[in-house]
Nucleic acid binder design. Structure first.
Length: 564
RNA sequence: GCGCCUGUAGCUCAGUGGAUAGAGCAACGGCCUUCUAAGCCGUGGGUCCUGGGUUCAAGUCCCCGCAGGCGCGCCA
């Protein structure tokens, strides 16, 4: 852990540079054959008035080798440091064994992070396009908690707006209770679609929709009852899907909860002279910040989405005193968030800087965008069920005697789906492809889970072997074992970085690194068939890899079966 | 028109300004009497969108373009 520090100190004694400068310059070579750390000397050429290779050579000669370093070499203007392997092995194993929560920390102690994610809409299908937000938000919550933060996960339901008036119209005209009770959201969506088909020919339907929404707002008994019923039906269905995904929320407060809190927001905006009239509507101009105006109140007096967003932010700040509030929402809403974050700042709240839009790319289908109205939606649940079913078949084929097959199929199938959106940078658009999601080879969750199961299998075989006693660390003095150790060593930094950048894929990548290294180690080196002291060293490595893979997957919301 | 984002192998993507640009998938070829072959090894495959600039060093930073996606007051 402090190797870098020791090397910097040694370098500092040998040359006239500042500690900080040296620390910044010290790099990790692209290939372990070139050492564990390296100092490129090119930048020194100007001040020292010598060619970089000469500087490297001289530095190398003048250097007093720190204890952790096995040897130092000057190559092509680099000073390369090779760590003492036994020392490195020991320190990594001890760090990983010190706590079952390797890589966790206390950096977040006393701090609260609110995470707004998934945010499904009432009376709309839970489509695959909700996967990025759901998986990323869930994982960020797990990662922040691992770093000691208190987290509050919130599902900001889309349960407000004139479309609910339209839903009532459609239901009263063409729907019936039995069908909705029986078919659930599917029936509601069919009504919604029918409304949009008929509204072109019958424009008065739109007015009826608005009128019914007004009734909801005013608390009309019938309107309210239907509205609550639609919501209940939707929540029942989505919670079944969340259960399958293993995703939970601390809070389900949606837009409707904040709808009666918008007056205060508008009043405060008025009071602070931020609102201007514009074509009968009320807007906040954002010319200084080179953004289009932000519309708060429609010309008919109704408030818009943004008002509820701000009301919700106030409420959350007041109730949770968050140090950070993350909005895991697609990049289409980038301008929207930039606008209202800025408005909160203009209102004089310095915590506006703690509002973060964690944006991600669009999910589309091979033949174009998804559309509820056109019925072009891939259902989340169908994808999950397909994945589980496919895994179940594979198990029946490869491991027919596996106990609790269905449970394992569930863990692996769901893991594969979650991992498919947690393995890349958030921002890129993705075209949903069932075949890709259901591909379990290579860099996937099943690969990591398989590696974990493999580790477990080895450890089971060694169940009677005592870990107490001498470890011969020379058994790890080979490129394969060293690669595993390096990958484990890099895990804590990957977790920290993932939190800092709101990018769970950094954890995914690191887990895969460990798995690749372990699989190669497993193939090249015998773990059990060797003298006790050596086996002990290799078993400790296996145990450490096993635990870190399991923990890494857990931070992504993915479970690790012990057999598969 | 303006703004934001993206452009790296056939496909999907990694790549804190540093050494020969890497993975996975797909294709082809090897490795199971040995700790789980959902694995491992190998082969082929590149104008890092183009052109300038900064730098000892650019896929990475800056600028002009090109292509695609998204967004730009009465939806959410």
């Amino acid at each position: 852990m402090n190797y870098q520090q020791e090397i910097v100190r040694a370098l500092q004694a040998a040359c006239p540079l500042e500690e900080k400068e040296l620390r910044d310059m010290l790099a990790v070579p692209p290939d372990p054959a070139m050492g564990d750390y390296a100092l490129p000397c090119f930048r020194l050429a100007k001040t020292m008035r010598k060619a970089p290779p000469v500087i490297a050579q001289e530095l190398c000669a003048a250097l007093e080798k720190p204890a952790c370093v096995e040897r130092v070499e000057a190559v092509n203007g680099y000073v390369n440091f090779y760590l003492d392997k036994d020392g490195f092995s020991r320190s990594v194993l001890e760090a990983a064994e010190a706590s079952p929560r390797f890589g966790s920390s206390e950096e977040g102690r006393g701090k609260t992070v609110c995470i707004d994610y998934s945010s499904i809409n009432v009376a709309k299908p839970f489509g695959i396009h909700h996967l990025p937000s759901t998986a990323i938000g869930n994982s960020l919550g797990l990662i922040y908690r691992y770093l000691g933060y208190h987290t509050v996960s919130m599902n900001f339901l889309g349960d407000w707006g004139t479309q609910f008036g339209r839903m009532i119209v459609a239901y009263k005209k063409w729907g019936n209770r039995e069908q909705v009770e029986h078919e659930g959201v599917k029936a509601l969506v069919a009504l919604y679609v029918r409304f949009h088909e008929e509204v072109d020919a019958h424009p008065e339907l739109a007015d009826e929709g608005r009128a019914w929404f007004k009734k909801i707002e005013e608390g009309d008994a019938e309107a309210r009852q239907l509205f609550d019923w639609f919501k209940e039906i939707t929540l029942k269905e989505v919670s079944r899907v969340y259960d399958k995904l293993g995703v939970t929320f601390d809070e389900y407060q949606g837009e409707s909860f904040f709808a009666n809190k918008t007056d205060q927001v508008i009043a405060e905006l008025e009071e602070k002279h931020l609102l201007s009239d514009s074509d009968g509507a009320k807007v906040v101009f954002l010319e200084e910040e080179k953004m289009p105006p932000c519309l708060f109140v429609r010309s008919d007096g109704a408030t818009l989405y943004v008002t509820r967003d701000i009301a919700a932010a106030f409420w959350r700040k007041e109730h949770y005193h968050f140090d950070k509030c993350l909005y895991v929402v697609a990049y289409q809403q980038d301008l929207h968030f930039r606008q209202w974050f800025r408005v909160v700042e203009k209102m004089g709240y310095d915590w506006a800087k703690d509002l973060v839009h964690v944006s991600f790319g669009m999910v589309s289908m091979a033949d174009g965008a998804m559309s509820t109205r056109k019925g072009r939606v891939v259902l989340m649940e169908d994808v999950l069920d397909n994945a589980v079913e496919k895994v179940d078949e594979i198990i029946r084929q490869k491991n027919p005697n596996l106990e609790n097959r269905e449970e394992v199929a569930r863990q692996v199938g769901i893991g594969a789906v979650l991992f498919s959106v947690l393995y890349t940078n958030r921002i890129k658009d993705t075209v949903f492809c069932m075949d890709n999601v259901l591909n379990f080879d290579g860099e996937t969750a099943p690969y990591a889970q398989y590696t974990h199961a493999r580790c477990c299998s080895v450890l089971r075989k060694a169940a009677n072997f005592s870990f107490e006693g001498e470890s011969d660390l020379s058994a790890l003095n080979n490129p394969e074992a060293q690669a595993v150790l390096r990958a484990i060593d890099a895990f804590p930094a990957a977790v920290r970085e993932a939190a800092a950048r709101y990018e769970p894929y950094l954890v995914s990548r690191q887990v895969i690194e460990i798995c690749k290294a372990f699989n190669k180690f497993y193939y090249e080196q015998r773990i059990l068939d060797c003298p006790d002291a050596q086996a002990r060293a290799r078993l400790r490595l296996t145990r450490a890899a096993c635990a870190v893979i399991r923990q890494g997957l857990a931070l992504l919301g993915i479970q690790s079966p012990e057999k598969m």
